[in-house]
Amino acid sequence: MNVKIILAVVVIIAAMWFGYESFVETNVEYSNFGTAESVQKKVQVKGTWVQERETKFDADRSVFTFYMVDEDGRLEHVVFDGAKPNNFEIADAIVVKGKYHDGSFYAEDILTKCPSKYEGTSETVQKTL
């Protein structure tokens, strides 16, 4: 009886490890602007805000536009129908959800990844700003 229990527990742990390994090997899947351009469907693109380029909020139409570089280094113009999200400037990374057409990425949603470092040294501040 005990042998059976040990065997079953070993199988459970081994199976979990096997599944976990396959997760560790692959990275989280994000689309980039390249696929966004080709697939015509709603995708998530992760990247960083480019502060050197024009970033503006058109209060009349309530449209926020900025430039963003995806993880492959491709720069795109992003149009978001809404106000500038909180923490936009200091976010570690930005995730935009939406579709690409006519030379711009039209975001339906913007998420800002909050920092995972709680050190607050001037070095970190510099990096995120």
Partner: peptide
């Protein structure tokens, strides 16, 4: 037994914004 699977399956479905 099944809960841990969710914890490692989920991050592959949607990227996490959660801090490490």
């Amino acid at each position: 037994v099944t809960m841990p699977f969710l914890m490692f399956v989920m991050p592959r479905i949607i990227a996490s914004l959660h801090p490490d």
